[in-house]
Amino acid sequence: MKKLPLLLFVVLAAASCASVGTSAVSEPEEMRATLERERMTKAGVLLRYGEPNAVFNKDGKEIFEYKYVSVYNNPASYPFLIGLFFKANRYRTNYLYVAFDRDGSFVSADAVGVSGAYPPENVF
């Protein structure tokens, strides 16, 4: 019985996030810095980070796209009355584009990310 409030709190906290993608991309700058420093080959990147979300060609290079997308509860919206001034959920999208040349050698890594209150703002 004593453990019930704690269990309820943990369940509510755990249910407050949905995500998809490669967890390493949740810190895209860190992943980009690692790739730039180690200049991993295509095989090395596949071994360490797994299959990318997508593979495509651009300007003669092969590009791996890794992504991490999450939507999570905004804790600022929990407190009584004060919470009404905040949106209930926030989101974060991180993409990492790793470019390789024809022989599989590392060329560059580019991190793109955006976060904000859910739903995303319409830029148009």
Binding site: A15, S16, C17, A18, S19, V20, K67, V69, S70, V71, Y72, N73, N74, S77, Y78, P79, F80, L81, G83, L84, A88, N89, Y91, T93, Y95, V112, V114, Y118, P119, P120, E121, N122, V123, F124
Partner: peptide, 24 residues
Amino acid sequence: GCHIPTVPSPDMLTIVETAFDPAV
């Protein structure tokens, strides 16, 4: 607080991914 947080769903992830972002 009359505010039960909406549990994020997979549909929300789709909406976030398909929102237009110039950099992506």
